[in-house]
Lab assay of single mutants.
Amino acid sequence: GSLMYASIFGNVSAIIQRLYSGTARYHTQMLRVREFIRFHQIPNPLRQRLEEYFQHAWSYTNGIDMNAVLKGFPECLQADICLHLNRSLLQHCKPFRGATKGCLRALAMKFKTTHAPPGDTLVHAGDLLTALYFISRGSIEILRGDVVVAILGKNDIFGEPLNLYARPGKSNGDVRALTYCDLHKIHRDDLLEVLDMYPEFSDHFWSSLEITFNLRDTNMIPGSPGSTELEGGFSRQRKRKLSFRRRTDKDTEQPGEVSALGPGRAGAGPSSRGRPGGPWGESPSSGPSSPESSEDEGPGRSSSPLRLVPFSSPRPPGEPPGGEPLMEDCEKSSDTCNPLSGAFSGVSNIFSFWGDSRGRQYQELPRCPAPTPSLLNIPLSSPGRRPRGDVESRLDALQRQLNRLETRLSADMATVLQLLQRQMTLVPPAYSAVTTPGPGPTSTSPLLPVSPLPTLTLDSLSQVSQFMACEELPPGAPELPQEGPTRRLSLPGQLGALTSQPLHRHGSDPGS
């Protein structure tokens, strides 16, 4: 009898404990919600809404976190579960008819179910419309201010047509639940991603989709105040780019002037030289400038040598048109050559190039014969006009050509200096018209024969001689050997007369 009593008592207590286990969990969670309300000092109306929603959600799901349970299964099984949970929507909604099984599984994985109690606001006026909503159960109302403009029910759709707008718009009203509602919502990016994977279904979906109420604000059109608020930074940046392009296009129409201050000032006329910023005076940081632009901040801005204009002085008759350009485009679109090309026009420029290279940067340069637009006047290309890779490749080509020119210049200078040193070592320090008596009659020769300089066969020296023939050397430049009979510069000019005159010897006659 005691054994029977113990078994009955144990079973009854276990049954009672299981009955009250759900209630215990409910009270535990309710205590957490109330502690949250007390800690954050939530006001009474919002506090009442929180408690009511918790009670309804507990009775609806029995305190089970559906998302946590669903995430515990593998992905393939999750797709089947989501397809079952959203079967009513996918079967009865017209846009989803005719979709393949794979497309429906992908869509079912992207849908999220939302449960809303009465009085809950789903979308506020001015919120971004980031999702498309399908009503599965219940009814909602749409308000503009305090005026109800629409009441939607089961199988209705609200949001915005995503295929017509590249960016999400703003809501033009509040969406509030009238009863307990079940909503299926899919985010904008998720829907577009699935439709991109199934393009054959995309056309059918957009053609058959009928949005019951379009929440997009109709005033959000390009150029409206609301649109400016939504895309303020983007609009200002776009206007700045367009104004920069218009100014650079105007600059290219004036090829007669070359400016070292950047493309923003290349198009300024002579009357605007004294102004601080020219056409860019209202925004000094709008356009890029070269490193020399920092010198323009000092006094005497109108007389600054940074602004270059072609000189009108005539060229000498024998002067060549100019050196070879550094870039391939210089032959086609440049009416002034790079300062480095002028360094190779003569030997005198070679000796004085490194010492006063900055001073020569603004000297007169030889002109190319074609009066085409200036290379320095070409505006900086924006990322939309020329690819970045093209600019980098041009810079690399320019750097390689500069290296080759520097190597060639160093070799030419070394060769010229070597020839000058050899000339100085071969010439005796001094010569006299009267020579010392020699031991015999073989001493009648006034000077030792001097062998002429070897013929220069280097390509670089031939180019130097060509430049010497075309360029007029300055007075202080050293002379180079030329073709024809060679003669030492330090010898007297009348050596031929010395050989014809008898030598005057000093000596005593033994017979006297």
Score class of each variant (00 low, 15 high):
G126S: 03
G126N: 06
D127P: 02
D127N: 03
L128D: 04
L129D: 03
T130F: 14
F134W: 12
I135R: 02
S136I: 05
S139Q: 12
I140M: 05
E141Q: 09
I142C: 04
I142N: 01
R144M: 09
R144D: 10
R144L: 06
R144T: 07
R144S: 12
G145Q: 06
V147E: 13
V148T: 09
V149H: 04
V149M: 11
I151T: 11
L152W: 01
L152G: 02
F158C: 01
F158M: 05
F158I: 09
E160F: 02
P161H: 08
L162K: 03
L164T: 13
L164V: 06
Y165Q: 07
A166V: 10
A166K: 07
R167P: 10
G169K: 01
S171F: 01
N172W: 11
G173A: 12
G173W: 03
G173D: 03
V175A: 06
R176K: 06
L178K: 09
Y180K: 03
Y180R: 04
C181D: 01
C181H: 01
C181R: 02
D182G: 08
D182F: 08
D182Y: 09
L183I: 09
L183V: 12
H184N: 09
K185Q: 13
I186L: 09
H187R: 08
R188I: 14
D189P: 03
D189L: 04
D189M: 05
E193N: 04
V194P: 01
V194Y: 01
L195V: 04
D196W: 08
D196I: 08
M197H: 12
P199L: 01
E200H: 04
E200Y: 03
F201R: 02
S202H: 12
F205I: 03
W206Q: 11
S208C: 09
S208A: 13
L209H: 03
E210I: 04
I211V: 12
I211A: 02
T212I: 03
R216F: 01
N219M: 09
M220V: 12
G223P: 12
S224K: 09
P225W: 12
P225R: 09
G226W: 10
G226Y: 12
G226M: 10
G226I: 10
S227H: 13
S227Q: 13
S227G: 08
S227I: 09
E229T: 06
L230E: 12
E231Y: 13
E231F: 08
G232R: 09
G233Q: 09
F234I: 10
S235F: 12
S235I: 13
R236C: 10
Q237D: 10
Q237M: 14
R238P: 07
K241R: 09
L242H: 07
F244M: 12
F244R: 10
F244L: 10
R245A: 12
R245W: 07
R245K: 13
R245C: 13
R245L: 13
R246Q: 10
R246N: 10
R246K: 08
R246G: 13
R247H: 13
R247N: 09
T248K: 07
T248F: 09
T248P: 10
D249F: 04
K250S: 12
D251A: 10
D251W: 13
Q254N: 14
Q254I: 12
Q254Y: 12
P255H: 09
G256C: 12
E257K: 07
V258I: 08
A260W: 13
G262T: 10
G262V: 11
P263E: 10
G264N: 08
G264E: 09
A266L: 12
G267A: 10
G267F: 08
A268C: 09
A268D: 08
P270M: 12
P270I: 12
S271Q: 04
S271F: 14
S271P: 14
S271M: 11
S272A: 10
S272T: 12
R273P: 08
P279A: 10
P284V: 10
S285H: 07
S285G: 13
G287C: 12
G287W: 15
P288K: 01
P288F: 04
E297W: 15
G298I: 08
G298R: 13
P299I: 02
R301L: 09
S302W: 10
S302K: 13
S304N: 03
S304W: 15
S304M: 12
L308C: 12
S312P: 13
S313E: 12
S313W: 08
P314Q: 10
P314N: 05
P316L: 15
P317C: 15
E319I: 13
E319H: 15
P320S: 10
P321T: 04
P321R: 10
G322V: 10
G323L: 10
L326A: 13
L326V: 03
L326N: 05
D329W: 02
E331C: 09
S333G: 12
S333D: 10
D335Y: 05
D335A: 12
T336F: 11
T336E: 11
C337W: 12
N338G: 12
P339K: 15
L340S: 11
S341I: 06
A343N: 08
S345Y: 03
V347H: 04
S348P: 07
S348F: 05
N349Q: 09
I350T: 14
F351V: 10
F353V: 07
G355K: 15
D356F: 07
D356I: 07
S357G: 08
R358L: 10
R360E: 08
R360W: 14
Q361N: 06
Y362D: 12
P369W: 04
A370Q: 10
P371T: 09
T372Q: 10
T372S: 10
P373I: 06
P373Q: 08
S374L: 09
L375D: 09
L375T: 15
N377V: 03
N377W: 13
I378E: 09
P379K: 10
P379C: 05
L380H: 08
S382E: 09
P383S: 11
R385E: 04
R385D: 13
P387N: 08
P387C: 06
P387G: 14
P387W: 13
R388Y: 12
R388I: 01
R388M: 05
R388S: 15
V391E: 13
V391D: 03
E392G: 08
E392R: 11
E392Y: 01
E392S: 05
E392D: 11
R394K: 13
L395P: 05
D396K: 05
L398A: 04
Q399W: 06
Q399C: 15
Q399Y: 01
R400V: 08
R400L: 10
R400N: 15
Q401H: 05
L402H: 04
R404T: 04
L405E: 01
E406M: 06
L409Q: 01
S410T: 14
A411P: 03
D412E: 05
L417P: 04
L417K: 15
L420K: 05
L420I: 08
L420A: 06
Q421W: 04
R422N: 09
Q423R: 10
P429T: 09
A430N: 13
Y431L: 09
S432R: 08
S432K: 04
A433G: 08
T435G: 11
T435M: 10
T436Y: 11
T436N: 12
P437T: 10
P437Y: 09
P437E: 10
P437H: 07
G438Y: 06
G438T: 05
G438D: 12
P439I: 05
P439D: 08
G440D: 11
P441C: 08
P441L: 09
P441Y: 04
T442W: 10
T442C: 12
S443I: 11
S443G: 08
T444Q: 04
T444P: 15
L448E: 08
S451H: 10
P452K: 08
L453P: 15
L456A: 09
L456C: 09
T457D: 09
D459K: 15
S460W: 04
Q463L: 10
Q463S: 08
V464Y: 04
S465D: 14
A469H: 14
E471R: 10
E471G: 12
L473K: 07
P474A: 13
P474K: 07
P474W: 04
P475K: 09
A477T: 08
A477S: 14
P478L: 11
E479T: 12
L480K: 11
P481H: 04
P481V: 09
P481I: 10
Q482F: 13
L491N: 13
P492C: 11
L495Q: 12
L495F: 01
L498A: 11
T499D: 14
S500P: 11
Q501P: 13
Q501I: 07
L503A: 10
H506E: 13
G507R: 12
D509C: 11
G511I: 14
G511D: 05
G511S: 10
